[in-house]
Design a protein around this nucleic acid. Structure first.
Length: 566
RNA sequence: GGGCCCGUGGCUUAGCCAGGAUAUAGCACCGGGCUUCUAACCCGGGGGUCGCGGGUUCGAAUCCCGCCGGGCCCGCCA
């Protein structure tokens, strides 16, 4: 949709510039194209040409304007306003937007890469907390955006089963009893208790070391213990993710890569780079010439492998099995991720694209599973759901208990997801209950509500059937400001998805969702549908359906339920 | 000490990578709108030296340099 219009503008400008004998500078966006309040698409290219042509930008803009080709498909008029060239869409384009939105033909992009997105990958030592879910929500939203853009996506969870954390869980299970609480919470309790016990009994540390060594050596008893503990915790984590409409397509255990020999192979290949050395019995990679101060330890003095080495093997596997591979990581992993990418480069392996999100802290400081200092995702969801239940009950007292619960659950999941995804990943945040429980405009319920309003209009107007392709709609009647603005906003969907998929910035879709809902609400407020004259009513019904489709798809891509009623 | 990220109205935040036309929204505050398609909505108002200082440019919230403030990291943990 919008991308078609934009391509045409680009083509027109290129022809005009050629006719004027102008050469384009290189770089991104050489035509200076931008969505602007003054036009559907504005170009500031005249400014850039001014120093070269030694003429005023306004004169250049006028010249380019004269040289624009006359044959056009979706571009209506082009206005020169001082130095700016303002392009406007024609009716044919807006009609096309309506038809495609009605037919649900407009929502999938043309990308076709196979993408692996690794997200969440939290240690199976306890429940997800409000920091982890920033990872999960950003990751899952990117998975959905990439799929929407046309990619085939495999969402992966990398399970850390060989680390010290998991060994401590096993030690914890040896000393304490898992109680009857939700699996991941029960695991956290023994994990925290074991860490506490270690403060008074240093022997606990040796027990953990022994677990690590025996696991890597393939001791069947330890394998059984770790695998059962991991599966138990992951089961609980999955339940939490499911509450937020998040799931993974595949799981990979780091031990896979050790047992298959990949890790040994990677160590061998790195040795061939000539940058490795033995120091104090440990095998290390010297990356100082690549700007890394500290050496990267590949193997402990006792011969066991480290997280980073296993991660190298995993990333090599991901690179071999995808066109793009994306990691979602907290800011604390920045350095190690840089080392990993450098090491991969040395091995000639394609590097992952890394999305770093800054920290989520509590008003009292940063979170720690080990110290038991965190607000769990379950706790957050429970609280938000409770609040949502009250809100729904207040508005729909006549509805069944099942309806209230289901609606509250979906409103809560949406509210939590939107609250996380609306902020750009590189902003550090402090968790705030008040904000989490706010269901007003800058929130998922606002957008879900717009969708429910559209659904309500369509339900009430059910009588008249619309052709699926909208061919029976009198498009020329949809020329009010709010109607046009809504159509234009619907049209931007493909642009937003394309950019978000390229730049891996899911918050752009959150912003778009709010704008789309606002555009619909204005249409709703000022353009009555059911009370309009028959032809107009029919046309507005069509627009309401198109908007509903756009809202549904946008919400779906954000992983938020598009409720028919709320 | 070094590296990376952030700093936009009282609070939260978009825009910054690809410099352009009155700087985006929400919360809070003030005022208005439900006999009318769901008011989780809509309309209007006040409130901003875009951290500070230099520079580049016809033009800087956006690019460069310096400083200040905050976050994260600098483990034979992950």
């Amino acid at each position: 949709m919008f991308l078609d219009f934009m391509s045409e503008v680009e083509a027109l400008l290129k022809v005009a510039l050629e006719r004027c004998g102008c050469n384009l500078e290189d770089g991104a966006n050489p035509l200076g194209l931008d969505i602007s309040p003054h036009a559907d698409l504005a170009s500031s290219v005249a400014f850039r040409l001014a120093p070269v042509l030694k003429k005023s930008p306004a004169a250049i803009a006028a010249e380019i304007h004269k040289a624009l080709p006359e044959e056009r498909r979706y571009v209506d008029r082009v206005e020169v306003l001082g130095p700016y060239l303002n392009f406007f869409m024609n009716d044919r384009f807006l009609d096309k937007v309506l038809q495609e939105a009605l037919a649900d033909n407009a929502w999938t992009g043309r990308m076709s890469e196979k993408v692996i997105v690794e997200h969440t990958s939290a240690n199976p030592d306890g429940p997800l907390h409000v920091g982890h879910i920033r990872n999960s929500v950003i990751g899952d939203t990117l998975v959905r955006i990439l799929r929407r853009a046309g990619c085939t996506v495999d969402a992966q969870y990398y399970i850390n089963d060989m680390g010290r954390q998991e060994a401590m869980v096993v030690v914890g299970c040896d000393h304490f009893q898992l109680d009857g609480s939700k699996a991941d919470h029960a695991v956290a309790k023994v994990y925290i208790a074991a860490n506490k016990l270690m403060e008074s009994q240093p022997g606990i540390r040796d027990e953990a070391d022994s677990v690590i060594a025996r696991y890597e050596a393939g001791d069947p008893e330890i394998i059984a213990k770790i695998q059962s503990a991991v599966k138990y915790a992951i089961g609980g984590i999955e339940q939490t993710l499911q509450r937020m409409n998040i799931s993974h397509d595949s799981y990979h255990w780091e031990s896979e890569f050790v047992r298959r020999g990949d890790v040994e192979e990677i160590v061998g290949l790195l040795e061939k780079t000539g940058l490795t050395e033995w120091e104090n019995g440990a095998f290390q990679l010297d990356l100082t010439s690549y700007g890394f101060e500290k050496k990267m330890v590949l193997k402990r003095a006792n011969g066991t492998s480290l997280y980073i080495t296993r991660d190298l093997a995993y990333h090599r596997w991901k690179a071999e099995n995808s066109d793009r591979s994306v990691d979602i990581l907290g800011a604390d992993h920045k350095l190690v991720s840089g080392q990993l990418r450098t090491a991969l480069r040395l091995l000639g392996v394609r590097e992952p694209e890394v999305v770093i999100f800054e920290f989520v802290s509590l008003p009292t400081g940063s979170m720690s599973t080990r110290k038991g200092k965190f607000i769990s995702a379950d706790e957050l969801l429970d609280e938000v759901e409770k609040q949502a239940y009250e809100e729904v009950k207040l508005r729909r007292p006549e509805e069944s208990e099942a309806f209230l619960r289901e609606t509250a659950a979906q409103v809560a999941a949406g509210a939590v997801r939107y609250d996380v995804v609306k902020v750009s990943a590189d902003k550090a945040t402090t968790f705030d209950w008040k904000q989490a429980l706010d269901f007003e405009k800058l929130s998922a319920p606002f957008i879900q509500y717009s969708h429910a309003r559209a659904a309500s209009i369509l339900r009430r107007g059910e009588g008249e059937a619309l052709a699926a392709d909208g061919s029976d709609i009198a498009c020329h009647l949809l020329k009010g400001d709010y109607e046009i603005a809504l159509l234009k906003k619907i049209a931007q969907f493909d642009l937003v998805i394309d950019r978000a998929a390229r730049e891996l910035k899911p918050h752009q879709l959150a912003t778009y969702a709010r704008e789309l809902a606002e555009s619909f609400n204005l249409f709703y407020r000022f353009s009555p549908v059911l009370d309009a004259e028959p032809d107009l009513r029919q046309a507005r019904m069509g627009l309401a359906r198109a908007a509903k489709n756009a809202l549904r798809v946008t919400l779906d891509t954000l992983g938020i339920a598009a409720l028919e009623t709320m």
